[in-house]
Write a protein that binds this DNA or RNA. Structure first.
Lengths: 129, 129
DNA sequence: CTGTAACTGAAAAAAGTTTTCAATTGGCGG
DNA sequence: CCGCCAATTGAAAACTTTTTTCAGTTACAG
């Protein structure tokens, strides 16, 4: 997991510094963390470096930046998945099964070339009901 | 359109001030505008008032706040629709036909009560191809 | 080992948003 | 139609988040 990401960095001509691997380790611990949550797991790494590392990892496709309504969040770009956000407690869960029906996408017909998509489902989680 | 929104405000115990109706008129001119775009259409209205008005209109369900990766955008909450964002020129277009297959939503089974969803499609628009 | 381009961190700047507070005003009751 | 007062506004200040600058440090290719 981390080895692959480190290799990707070096392959791109970037250095694998202790700070960068610390951020990677933090990201591996939990999905969709805020910047401060990530930072809390990297006590030694400067704020600016965390920002810059997240930018770099995003460019390399290792990390994905999310915007779920409450500021920026970051997660390792694993398998294709979507998010379910509880409007009551704010909990974010993931689901892999994509409920998108590609044949219903009316965009191909209008010459829009679909590259990716993101779907967020809002509601109430089991615990909050 | 605007009459309905103004009525909704008064009904909620809020005043229909010239500033608020100016923001509403600005929002009616174009969908998914940034704050500065809205402000440019309301030359006389103070920055803070625009923020507060957008908050109020969101609470009343008249306006929806979007986060499509490049900061906050606002649009009148018309019919259910989704957004197609061109990664090349940044153009945002809308489509009404929702390609979501409800029977595929695996969430009901896991006791998550779906209230709403948002779907964004990224790719290249006809002009950029 | 060594040189150097890449990287880091602190401070400052910039950008975006919210709070404060004194002055103003929409619209209800009279 | 008028006056009152809670709601509203705008300017300044405060706050939060992100980016830039720059001098010193370091990973790693050769």
């Amino acid at each position: 997991m981390l080895e692959a990401a480190i290799g990707k960095m070096r392959g791109g001509g970037y250095k694998a510094t202790p700070q960068r691997t610390a951020v990677l380790r933090a990201l591996a611990e939990e999905q969709h963390q805020s910047l401060e949550e990530i930072r809390a797991r990297c006590p030694g790494v400067g704020l600016v470096t965390v920002y810059r590392t997240l930018d770099l990892l995003s460019e390399l496709g290792i990390v994905r930046r999310l915007d779920l309504g409450d500021g920026a969040r970051y997660e390792m770009a694993k398998d294709h998945h979507h998010h379910a956000i509880c409007e009551s407690c704010g909990d974010i869960s993931e689901f892999e099964k994509c409920p998108l029906d590609p044949t219903l996408l009316p965009l191909e017909a209008s010459d829009f070339e679909v590259r990716s998509h993101s779907l967020e489902v809002y509601g109430r989680c089991a615990a909050c009901r």
